[in-house]
């Protein structure tokens, strides 16, 4: 197949390979477009990129295929995943489109553009493929190197400067400058007393052994959750795992078992309350909490 690619003709093997890869690539692309969660989109895109890498190799661009895997799939996609973790891995688009007519117009433009592009390619005279036999005569990497370091050396140097600039730019953008000295423990305590909003320490999360984790809020005496006990970032993302109802139910079961074991009469037992509907959180968006539990379990 590689040999055929060099001559410009295509073999049946390449055709089969192309159709498989094309399906994977388009499927990955559509998946990226349609998946609601960013992580899934990223994984779909990675699949598309790998398929494209194979396509490059099939067309005699071996070096590029490798670079595609290393740089795109390996570096860039990982960078995406990192940022996603930072921003919130479970965050997803809401289904509601806020811009009127945007979705329709986008689909219309996309279809129109695709049709035009394909029509344009179909109209072009592309029947004769030269093939890369001559160009890759001393090897693809050598051929590329000869070009890069002769004809494109200036562009290559400039690209290096661009990468350095980008690295520094990213550092500058994400770096946070302290405009004042960070407060000490003593100052923070004094401030807390002065504000008189929350003088004692915040309630601790994860008060039950089964769920001793930072995303489990502590429970208040009436069984409701203490939202303050979960760190602000998780609260912001809506990633609080509310286990209060479950816990209350288990407590009731435990009481029941104990009463059975002690042989208490039913009149002396505490009434078994049906699980109440938990009141809505005031500060925390709760609509996403079921999916948040799914995502982490």
């Amino acid at each position: 197949m590689n040999a055929l690619a060099l001559t410009g003709a295509t073999s049946t093997g390449e055709a089969v390979q192309f159709w498989i890869l094309a399906v994977i690539a388009v499927g990955g692309a559509l998946g990226m477009l349609l998946m609601r969660k960013a992580v899934h989109s990223a994984l779909c895109l990675a699949a598309t990129m790998i398929a494209l890498a194979v396509c490059y190799m099939a067309q005699g661009a071996v070096f590029l295929g490798v670079v595609q895997v290393v740089v795109y799939t390996g570096a860039i996609m990982m960078l995406f995943l990192f940022v996603m973790m930072l921003v919130g891995v479970t965050s997803e688009d809401s289904l509601k489109e806020q811009l009127k007519g945007q979705r329709f117009a986008a689909v219309f433009c996309g279809l129109g553009f695709g049709v035009l592009l394909i029509a344009g390619i179909a109209n072009a005279k592309l029947d004769h493929f030269t093939g890369l036999a001559d160009a890759n005569a001393e090897g693809n990497v050598q051929g590329l190197a000869r070009l890069i370091f002769t004809k494109y050396v200036w562009a290559f140097e400039v690209t290096g400067a661009l990468l350095i600039t980008a690295a520094i730019g990213a550092m500058v953008l994400t770096h946070r400058e302290h405009v004042k000295a960070p407060s000490t423990q003593r100052e923070l305590a004094a401030q807390r007393v002065k504000d008189n909003i929350q003088v004692p320490p915040m309630p601790a999360p994860g008060v039950y052994a089964r769920h001793n984790a930072v995303d489990v809020p502590g429970l208040l005496p009436d069984g409701s959750i203490a939202e303050d006990s979960v760190m602000a970032t998780l609260r912001e993302r809506g990633q609080i795992r509310d286990v209060s109802q479950e816990m209350l139910q288990r407590m009731a079961e435990l009481e029941e078992t104990t009463a059975d074991w002690l042989g208490r009469p039913s009149s002396a037992r505490p009434p078994v309350a049906p699980p109440e509907q938990r009141r809505a959180l005031q500060k925390v968006p709760t609509a996403k909490s079921p999916s948040a539990e799914e995502g982490s379990e």
């Binding site: 690619a5 067309q59 005699g60 030269t130 093939g131 160009a135 070009l147 004809k151």
Partner: peptide, 10 residues
């Protein structure tokens, strides 16, 4: 690149 037979496209 394959069409033209040179590596500039790559």
């Amino acid at each position: 690149s394959r069409l033209h037979g040179n590596l500039d496209g790559q």
